Simulated assay, not measured.
Amino acid sequence: MRWLGHPAVKPGVFVVWLLPAAWLTWAAFADRLGANPAEALIRSLGDWTLRALVLVLLVTPLRVWTGWSQLARLRRMLGLFVFFYGSLHWLAYAWFDKGFDWQEVLVDVPKRPFILVGTLAWLLLVVLAATSFNRAIRWLGAARWQALHRAVYAVALLAVLHFFWMRAGKHNFAEVAVYASIFAVLLGWRWWRHLMRRRSSAAAGRVSVPQG
C-alpha cells in the first residue's frame, strides 16, 4: 500500500496515539472518570499500554503476510508509545497509590507480585526505549541490538502476567484471555518463523557441501 509511505502517515499515527492521553487528561480534570478516578486512570493507561504492545508485535507479521514493507517505519514510534503509556501507567500508580513517596514504593513493589512483574516489564521498556535510536544500533551492532530488542517478548509475557494477577482478585479474566491469546499467536508465529529459517539454513548448508 503506497499510502503508507506518504510523509503525513507518521505524524498522523503520532497524533492518533496521543489522543488517548489527551482524552484521559481532559477526563481527569473534568471529573469524568467515575467514582474512583485514580483507579480508572491507572487501569486505562495500562489498557493503552497493552494495545500499543499488540500493535508493535503485529507490525512484522502484517508486513510479512501483506508485503506492506512501509509498515516497518512505524514500528519504532509505536514501540515508544508502549513505553510512553507504560511509564504513565507506572507513574500513576506511584502518584495515586503512594503519593510519590519513593521509600513506600520501594517497599510496596516487592510485596505485591502483580506490581513487581509490572515494574519489571516497565524497566525492560526503559532499556528498549533508551536503545531505540540509530546511535544505539551503531554502538551495539545490529546483531546485539536485535537480540536485546527481543526482550519485547518478555515484556509481553510479564504484561499479561501483571494483568492476570491484577484481575485475579475479582475473578475477571475475559480481557486477560483475549490479550494472552493474541500474544500467544504472535509469539508462536515468531517461533515458527525462526524454526523455518533455521531449517532453511541447515538445508542450504547440506546442499552446499561438496560430494567426494
Rank of each mutant, 00 (worst) to 15 (best):
A38K: 03
E39F: 12
E39A: 14
E39H: 07
A40L: 12
A40H: 10
A40C: 13
L41E: 01
L41K: 04
I42G: 00
I42D: 00
G46W: 03
G46A: 02
D47M: 15
D47F: 15
D47G: 13
D47Y: 15
D47I: 14
W48G: 05
W48K: 01
T49W: 06
T49M: 15
R51M: 07
A52D: 08
A52S: 12
L53E: 01
L53I: 01
L53Q: 03
L53F: 04
V54Q: 09
L55C: 08
L55T: 09
L55R: 10
L55N: 04
L55Y: 06
V56M: 05
V56L: 09
L57Y: 09
L58T: 07
V59Q: 08
V59Y: 09
L62Q: 08
L62D: 10
R63A: 15
R63F: 09
V64G: 09
W65Q: 08
W65K: 07
W65N: 06
W65P: 07
T66I: 02
T66A: 05
T66P: 00
G67T: 02
W68P: 05
W68F: 08
W68C: 04
Q70A: 15
L71D: 08
A72H: 11
A72G: 12
A72I: 04
R73D: 09
L74F: 01
R75A: 06
R75M: 01
R76L: 05
R76M: 06
G79F: 01
L80Y: 00
L80T: 08
L80E: 06
F81R: 04
F81D: 10
F81Y: 13
V82M: 10
V82E: 06
F83T: 04
F84V: 07
Y85S: 07
Y85V: 06
G86M: 14
S87C: 14
S87N: 12
S87T: 14
H89N: 05
W90S: 10
W90A: 13
L91Q: 01
L91K: 00
L91T: 00
L91S: 02
A92D: 02
A92W: 00
A92K: 00
A94I: 01
A94K: 01
W95E: 14
F96K: 04
F96A: 05
D97P: 10
D97M: 10
D97K: 11
D97F: 08
D97E: 14
K98S: 13
G99I: 09
F100L: 03
F100H: 00
D101A: 09
Q103P: 01
V105G: 03
V105M: 03
V105Y: 07
L106Y: 12
L106F: 15
L106D: 11
D108A: 15
D108K: 09
P110H: 05
P110Q: 08
P110C: 04
P110R: 11
K111F: 13
R112A: 06
R112D: 08
R112F: 11
R112G: 04
R112E: 08
P113V: 08
P113R: 05
F114A: 13
I115W: 11
